Amino acid sequence: MRPPASANTREPTAFPVGGTVDAESTARPLRFTPRLDLPGQQLIVAGYTDARERDEQVADTFGSVQWLWSENDFFRFDKDRLELCSATFYLPPRAAPHGAKLCREAPVPSSAPAGLRAGEPTDFELPQATVFRCASDGAELVCLRTPGLLARQPYAVIGIAPDVDLLIHDGALTGWRLSDPARWLTDGFARPFPPSDAIPAPSARTRHHLAECLRLTSAPVVDAVLDQDPAAWRDLLALQRAVHAQAEDRARADVLQSVLDRLVEDNGE
């Protein structure tokens, strides 16, 4: 298989998806509004609006899916055209370790809008990312298969939907990136804002609160919360109060509030 082309060119980029199926980029990205379902810990890029519609699409498509005990992201392809028709990514359970070496030296390749076409109509496994880093200002959320990739720039970046990119290392799909994740915050399958409304930019406060929420609700910090560590609990309760007091951007703040309230209620004394 030839190496992937630069994401800055229009040449198709071929790479393995899940290790068993090859895919190549097309000129047709998904047009769906991304939905960052924070309570559900997933990013939905699809046209379905509930679990029933999702299950119906799974029956009519091929690709990867979560079965009992599996930890796969959803990549579903049309059986006739072999083109990507939806994707769901699960948020990794662990944040980048404190002090981890992060790649900042070289510029990240620019994202080129593109869809995907599978090489053959067969099901496959697509393991979830295991680690993430979220900029403290909430500018982007990067999720990768292994911590070692945090210190490496991707070879190519493929924009499969608005603000949603696939990351390619060594010719293979290794993770994904969501730009301005606070913009797409929602609860469940709901669109972030009604379809008739343009999605407004989140406030700087919301972006910061989301980054802090992700830090406090993911390992290793959440382990300290569950163990009733005083410092971790102080940080959690301080964020809960700050989000509760936030006046602007309340629709998104309510999503954050629900996640924080549940963690406090389920683990408080």
Rank of each mutant, 00 (worst) to 15 (best):
F124M: 06
L82T: 04
I160P: 00
P220T: 02
D73C: 10
G159E: 12
V45R: 10
F189S: 06
F75V: 07
T122G: 09
L214S: 06
T49Y: 10
D223C: 07
D165R: 14
Q240A: 13
A253L: 03
D249R: 04
H209A: 02
V259F: 00
P93T: 05
P230G: 06
C143Q: 11
Q257P: 06
P16G: 13
P154T: 08
S258Y: 05
S111H: 12
A182M: 11
R2S: 15
I199D: 01
P12Y: 13
E83A: 13
T174G: 15
Q246K: 10
L256V: 07
L30V: 01
W67G: 14
P200F: 04
P12A: 14
C213H: 02
G119L: 08
E140F: 14
L82G: 01
R262N: 13
R252P: 11
L260P: 00
A156D: 07
T61R: 15
H208W: 13
P97R: 07
F89V: 00
A59D: 12
P34Q: 11
T33W: 09
P3F: 13
N267F: 04
L91E: 05
L239I: 00
F124L: 02
A242V: 00
A231C: 03
T9I: 04
D137H: 10
S64V: 04
R145H: 14
P121L: 05
Q57R: 15
P3N: 12
W184D: 08
R35W: 04
V17A: 13
V131Q: 01
L214D: 02
R152E: 06
R234P: 02
R31E: 14
N267S: 13
A7Q: 12
Q228V: 07
T174E: 14
R205K: 15
A27F: 13
A106Q: 06
R54C: 13
W67I: 08
A14Y: 05
V264D: 05
D60I: 00
T130A: 12
P4G: 09
Y48R: 10
R2T: 13
R133M: 08
R76Q: 08
T186I: 03
I44A: 07
V131S: 03
R250V: 04
T9K: 05
L237Y: 01
K79D: 07
S86L: 12
L226Q: 13
V222Q: 02
C143Y: 00
I158A: 11
L30S: 02
L68Q: 10
I160L: 03
C103L: 08
L226F: 12
R205N: 09
D197E: 11
L116G: 01
A96G: 06
P154S: 08
R234Q: 11
L263F: 01
L84F: 00
S218K: 09
E212I: 01
P34W: 13
L210K: 05
R54G: 08
